[in-house]
């Protein structure tokens, strides 16, 4: 089985989010980048499925050269090879076209993405990929099991879960529950250095949308502390002041 894992390089979860150029661009000064946490789940699952030589794992990243530490980390975790499409990852539409262009020539059986990236929070790449490759896609998987040519997926739905089965090839967006993220060991880190990392050029994709401005959410006023002995006051404030009950 050939597995492709799509990696996004995102600001660390503790990063302070600020903007520059008149609030039109994310300010990455001093920001530590990590593998998108949901993509780490996808990667861990792929490596698990490949155990004992049952599959090969290719990781792909669309981005500039500064993302290479993230890609090497994925190789250290256990991916066999990596591909970087050398371009600024403008948006999900652009990224999906790059991945689809690569995947078309390779016949992957299973394409995994994280359910969403924690920077732009689209849940887009998996669906775009499914459509561009004309294969099924499952957006938010909580568990997945491969049985031959078929894959059983538990998908999150409001207030519960849905179990579905789908034939390979398929694109799946992974969420918590699919696998535990793996930490690279020393051997992995050493071998990662010599694993292939291919850099390819991007294809042209028409622009359909563009972020033109960022705002930081309005801040709340100072907290109103209420005595634990006067909870009726809290109830009253929620009703009359906040008007939420």
């Amino acid at each position: 089985m050939k597995i492709l894992v799509c990696l996004s390089n995102v600001p660390d979860t503790t990063s302070k989010i600020t903007f520059t150029d008149n609030n039109t661009r994310f300010n990455n000064t001093g920001v530590q980048y990590i593998i998108n946490p949901y993509d780490e789940i996808a990667l861990a699952k792929a490596v698990e499925l490949a155990e004992g030589g049952k599959a090969t794992v290719t990781v792909i990243h669309v981005g500039e050269a500064d993302a290479e530490p993230t890609i090497r980390k994925a190789l250290a975790v256990g991916a066999d090879e990596a591909v970087r499409v050398n371009a600024f990852a403008r948006d999900a539409w652009f990224v999906a076209h790059q991945i689809a262009a690569f995947a078309k020539s390779q016949q992957f059986d299973l394409i995994l993405t994280g359910r969403e990236s924690i920077d732009y929070n689209g849940v887009q790449v998996q669906g775009f990929l499914g459509e561009l490759l004309a294969i099924p896609s499952v957006s938010i998987a909580k568990s997945l099991q491969v049985n031959g040519d078929e894959i059983t997926v538990e998908r999150e739905i409001e207030g519960g879960k849905e179990v579905l089965s789908v034939s390979l090839p398929v694109v799946i967006g992974t969420a918590e529950g699919v696998a535990e993220p793996k930490i690279p060991n020393m051997r992995g880190i050493m071998t990662a250095r010599s694993k292939p990392l291919q850099v390819i050029d991007a294809i042209d994709v028409p622009v359909l949308s563009k972020i033109v401005h960022y705002d930081t959410p309005p801040s709340r006023g100072a907290v109103q502390l209420i005595s634990k002995d006067d909870l009726a006051q809290l109830v009253n404030l929620l009703h009359t002041e906040a008007k939420v009950i």
């Binding site: 689209g122 849940v123 669906g127 775009f128 459509e131 998908r155 409001e158 359909l208 949308s209």
Partner: peptide, 23 residues
């Protein structure tokens, strides 16, 4: 933008060559 909506929205946008504004 429900769980199901999230799954479909990019596929619909791609079919229609439409811009996608999710969330």
């Amino acid at each position: 933008n429900s769980f199901s909506g999230k799954g479909m929205a990019p596929r619909i946008a791609a079919k229609l060559d439409a811009a996608l504004a999710d969330g």
